[in-house]
């Protein structure tokens, strides 16, 4: 028996999220009194693989196969399933991100394993196996029992406080049987030199209250001094003031940074659905009755374009 955790790397380096996943998996392994097996797919050096052991992985299975250079959902699913079967995994942990959303449902059918999508804390019990997840885009939560022998959980990003817990671990190179790959990738564009919205610990977001697309300089400057990513509300991306990749909200990106600063955003229920899991929310808005203040931890009633320059100066003083 084991808890299997699927980790992701970028050009051979693990993302912070992978350590969060391994740490989460090891806590479930403790509840089940079993071991944690971490799976890595890609060209990852041994020094890097070892880092997974710092978050309590007992065993690290490394798969490096040319057919898996690009994400083919079917091929990746079959590799994870093969390793899960080999390791007799009863619980499989995957990230609730683009890759996880692509793989977890397929794996659920392949292994006839019930899927708990977007969990944000440890199961309340393992017998019956009861998970806690948000529903209605964060307007409520549900307790869900997974009835199948194998369970798959996808962990919501930035939802689990992970800790270092170094363990002695074994590293195994594994050669899976990879079938035909039916998707081909012709062009990859990676965002470079910019903090990615989904990875960012701090996000500065602008709404219609910024008045127009050419008023974004203070948001960008504050993002610069805080090491933050920039985002926007739906009307802003609909107006074309900002690219749609920056739209956060129910139908855009759903994020959970440590700090979310909403400038000139009134906080429609759909916007709050995308940001309400943020650890700390700051709202700057001229309307004291704006719903954003109900979701916020700290608020300033004022014009964002006047408040932001002072904000930038105040941050510069402490940095």
């Amino acid at each position: 028996m084991s808890v299997l955790v699927f980790t992701e790397n970028w050009d051979g380096k693990f993302k912070k999220m992978s350590f969060e996943l391994v740490s989460y998996a090891s806590k479930i392994a403790e509840m089940l009194n079993t071991q944690t097996v971490a799976l890595s797919i890609g060209d990852v050096q041994e020094d890097e693989l070892k880092k997974l052991g710092n978050y309590a992985a007992d065993k690290i299975v490394s798969v490096n196969n040319d057919k898996l250079n690009n994400l083919d959902n079917q091929a990746y699913t079959s590799v994870i399933a093969e390793v899960a079967t080999k390791e007799e995994a009863t619980v499989i942990i995957i990230a609730q991100n683009n890759m996880g959303k692509a793989l977890a449902p397929r794996l659920s059918v392949k292994l006839k394993a019930g899927l708990g999508a977007g969990v944000s804390k440890l199961p309340a019990s393992v017998e019956p196996f009861t998970i806690f997840k948000k529903v209605y885009s964060g307007k409520a939560y549900s307790n869900v029992v997974i009835k199948s022998d194998i369970k798959i959980l996808t962990l919501a990003q930035n939802s689990f406080e992970f800790e270092e817990n170094a363990k002695s671990h074994a590293i195994e190179n594994f050669e899976p049987s990879v079938g035909d790959v039916k998707t081909s990738v012709s062009n990859v564009q990676k965002q470079t030199g910019k903090i990615l919205l989904n990875d960012a610990e701090i996000v500065i977001s602008g709404g219609r209250g910024m008045k127009s697309g050419d008023q974004w300089a203070p948001i960008e400057e504050l993002a610069e001094v805080l090491g933050a990513a920039t985002a926007c509300s739906r009307p802003v991306s609909d107006e074309g003031w900002r690219p749609h990749e920056e739209h956060t909200g129910q139908t855009g990106k759903i994020i959970a940074p440590n700090l979310y600063i909403a400038a000139g955003i009134s906080g429609a229920i759909q916007h709050l659905a995308g940001i309400s899991s943020s650890k700390c929310i700051v709202a700057i808005n001229t309307d004291k009755d704006a719903p954003i203040f109900e979701a916020a931890d700290y608020g300033i009633i004022g014009d964002a374009s006047k408040v932001l320059p002072d904000f930038i100066e105040a941050v510069k003083e402490i940095k």
């Binding site: 959303k101 977890a104 977007g118 209605y136």
Partner: peptide, 15 residues
Amino acid sequence: ADYNGSAVGGMVAEF
């Protein structure tokens, strides 16, 4: 927008 499962499409494909 109700159960936020992100699951049906991928599951159909695997079936």
